[in-house]
């Protein structure tokens, strides 16, 4: 219930109406959105119980390692009510045709299987916010100083996920396990998404804000 309360307000893509549609506009819109989402994600992380008690170095390592998983999971959850469309933001819903026309098809194809997976599980908001926190704490960063402290946070989030399973899904004792088993696909999807943005960065045609660049470079 704490994670539900600290769930961030939605933010909007606000594509620039003066720029003609096309690859550059679509990618500029997404990079700008991602930069603002990152600010929100960093603020959100601080509200995960126990996160702010970790050392600043460990907080940084976890975010640098998992930010794209958190970002992808948010897009996926927003897209659950849609068919073949990705809700990057409420004012930026992209179907396959739009994705093809605006150079977002790679991203589209990478993220949709994860949407299908969570649809099949009928994942609920309580589960989603818990999984998002688990993705952050379970980032497998190689640079964690206090491994035990991170493990304790993982354990309490894992326990929350199991409690949800045993109270809301008595019909399926494996519910929490099924949700945890989606995390490899999330990591794979985030890796493909990062790859997409790395190549955009290398091409240099799309402006990227400093925080987004800083976080991309941390994953390089």
């Amino acid at each position: 219930s704490h994670l539900l309360v600290v769930e961030p307000e939605k933010i909007y893509a606000m594509p620039d109406p003066t720029v003609p549609d096309g690859d550059i506009k679509a990618l500029t819109t997404l990079c700008d959105l991602a930069d603002r989402e990152l600010v929100v994600i960093i603020g959100w992380a601080k509200h995960i119980p126990g996160f702010s008690s970790l050392s600043l170095t460990d907080q940084m390592s976890l975010l640098q390692s998992a930010w794209m998983e958190v970002l992808v999971l948010s897009i996926v959850f927003r897209s659950l009510a849609f068919e073949g469309e990705l809700v990057y933001a409420d004012d930026y819903v992209v179907d396959e045709e739009h994705a093809r026309l605006s150079g977002l098809l790679d991203l589209h194809v990478a993220i949709l299987p994860l949407v299908q997976r969570y649809k099949k599980l009928q994942v609920e908001k309580e589960e989603f916010v818990t999984l998002k926190a688990i993705a952050l704490l379970n980032s497998d960063s190689m640079h964690i100083e206090d491994v035990d402290a991170v493990q304790r946070l993982q354990d309490s989030l894992h326990e929350a996920l199991q409690d949800l399973g045993s109270s809301q899904h008595t019909e399926d004792p494996q519910r929490a396990g099924k949700l945890l088993m989606t995390l490899p696909l999330l990591r794979q999807t985030a890796a493909r998404t990062l790859q997409h943005f790395f190549s955009i960065k290398v091409q240099g045609k799309v402006p990227m804000h400093k925080l987004f660049l800083e976080m991309l470079e941390a994953k390089a």
């Binding site: 600010v39 170095t57 640098q64």
Partner: peptide
Amino acid sequence: KEKHKILHRLLQNST
């Protein structure tokens, strides 16, 4: 960590 100035600053902000 010098390279990650913005993340560092945002985490230190109390809000």
